[in-house]
Design a protein around this nucleic acid. Sequence first.
DNA 1: ATGCCGTATGATATACGA
Length: 268
Amino acid sequence: MKISIATWNVNSVRAHLSTVEQFLAAKQPDVLCLQEIKVTNELFPLELFEAHGYVHHALHGQKAYHGVAIFSKAALPLEKVTRKHWCDIDQARHVYCTLPGGIELHNFYVPAGGDKPDAEINEKFRHKLDFMTEVSAWFKRRKRRKNRFVLVGDLNVAPLETDVWNHKQLLRVVSHTPIEVAHMDTWYASHDWVDAVRHFIPADENVYSWWSYRARDWELADKGRRLDHVWVTPALAPNLRGAEVFKPARGYQPASDHAPVIIELETE
DNA sequence: ATGCCGTATGATATACGA
């Protein structure tokens, strides 16, 4: 069975309900992972998702900030739902569950990291680096050859030169600094992850998934970064069938500043 | 270096995003 998995930082699910609906109508992914839902589980607008056939859900929300969630169609029940916290901080940044076929799906929202890329003076940047270090150690401990894991989310790091609109200019900008990329490299190595998007799109081609609100014309300026990722473990890499950034969603009104990333995967 | 814009909050300014 071939399924599609989408990951999208919606920048508040309640503020972008109509935008979410437009995306669901357009793409109907079998599994949808959201970040920055910015709402508690109690107040989450489940009805919209149920109306589109997403009868299974795994919510990990909180008030005002962060928050992640996973949805799936009827044929794909979500089991063993786990809400995990990192760095001893009570922030909703990770939820994971198991899909039929024993695929473990991880949905992350990595800390943005604040303005200054200096862990000595910027607590948020320290947190971002520590978060990646802790998660890396966890996956490294759990590493097994047969593990079928999918990891998605807003990882808030654009690792390759072609993942940003201007490599040199962004070297000292949070999301593309060498120390962040090094931490992401450690994470990437923790389970020999395979980057599903770069599996299909060569590394010399620019790919972005986020465009700032602060440009007059985001599409024309095209000052994007690839912050949203889908990784799979080596056992699942042969099952990858496709990957794309669904750029039209960045043009929806009102828009999230992130576009969804969608992969297709054979589950057998 | 800054601003540009957007979302959320016991809000009418401030924190956060990246």
